[in-house]
Design a protein around this nucleic acid. Sequence first.
DNA 1: TCTGGGGTCCTAGGACCC
DNA 2: TCTGGGGTCCTAGGACCC
Length: 405
Amino acid sequence: MQLPDRWIAHLDMDAFYASVELLRYPQLKGEAVVIGGRRADAPRQLEDGRWEYARLRNYTGRGVVTTSTYAARDLGVFSAMGLMKAALRAPDAILLPADFDSYRKYSRLFKAAVAEVAPVIEDRGIDEIYIDLTDVPGVRDTVGHDPLGGVKAVAREIKNSVGRATGLTCSIGVTPNKLLSKIASELEKPDGITVLTMDDLPTRIWPLAVRKINGIGPKAGEKLVKLGLHTVGDIAAADPAWLVEQFGESYGQWLHNASHGRDSRPVVTHSEPVSVSRETTFERDLHAVHDKALLGQIMDELCERLAQDLARKRYAGKTVGIKLRFEGFVTVTRDQTLKTPVATAADIRRAVGLCLKRVSFDKRLRLMGVRVGNLVHASELAAAPAASPTAVLGQAPARENLPLF
DNA sequence: TCTGGGGTCCTAGGACCC
DNA sequence: TCTGGGGTCCTAGGACCC
């Protein structure tokens, strides 16, 4: 067996949000539970001490499933499904509102627990990480006659550490690269460990559906199937020149490499944010003229919250953008790059005004969002620019030239 | 009973500069 | 006279991911 020059792990928490909720409501273990919905749907404790939960059947309005327990998945309820549709499939399922503060807390706990065993970690969101195990002591040890014994032992140790710190289970895939590890971590879910080498490609990876590859989404997946390519092995067997004809130079090449399990991306332990945004979908579609005051108020609040986010993270940004989604799900964006980075709600709101002027409102709106990009960290902004953003926009300054932070 | 909210990255065209 | 080629920035949209 050719042993790889890198051992990369992908760790994925099992049904993360739902599992955190089960720590708080252990009496719901084994039940079909769906995370999603509104704060008003939070469980209430009755006078006799029993808990009363919202049921999916009583839900009305917009919103999607954030996560579901494995019992709910057995009923056909999955992430990103509309709650109304989920209610048709599992009317008796218990509905819990998402509690992101709590999930963030457990996220910090499990990442710290992993770091005690293996410190080279790439954050991939709240419930998953990549870990470079290559230089972890013992990872290349043979255990008994098993040359992969050392890797398996390290993966087991990571799982135990996460379990002790959080009471939660996770699944781990360990392979020579990120692409394969991401696939592998799903193979024995939940609570599993899967170690693969390149030798396993034909038996474990090639039979899988093309959508199992991270980077093949709904669109590319559908196109591949239309071309007669259903499995990863089908892509691997296809002529790379033909893939390039069908999908373009860049994506075609990538498909070829991915299907052969080739991926040299490093585990990146630090990255800077590119943009920060806030958006909201309305309970009902709003009319640009009829609901003008309400829309203006909602936009004020979005800018206010975005400014708070920026202040907390200590960033300002040169580009302000809006996102509008109309009835029919047609989405429009407008950007405005300023001469000076902005971070206050008032400055963001002014730039939003410029963006809004460039959109025609002939349909009702279902979503509005604000984004600040081209970010600069406060530490790089120490030498304050002379011109205030308001002056740049050609308006009278609304206030003194205050420091941004 | 359609389709949340927070992100990243890519493409492609036009402006503008040398 | 109708003609270049490269580089960077900006904008809009879209695919994809968690």
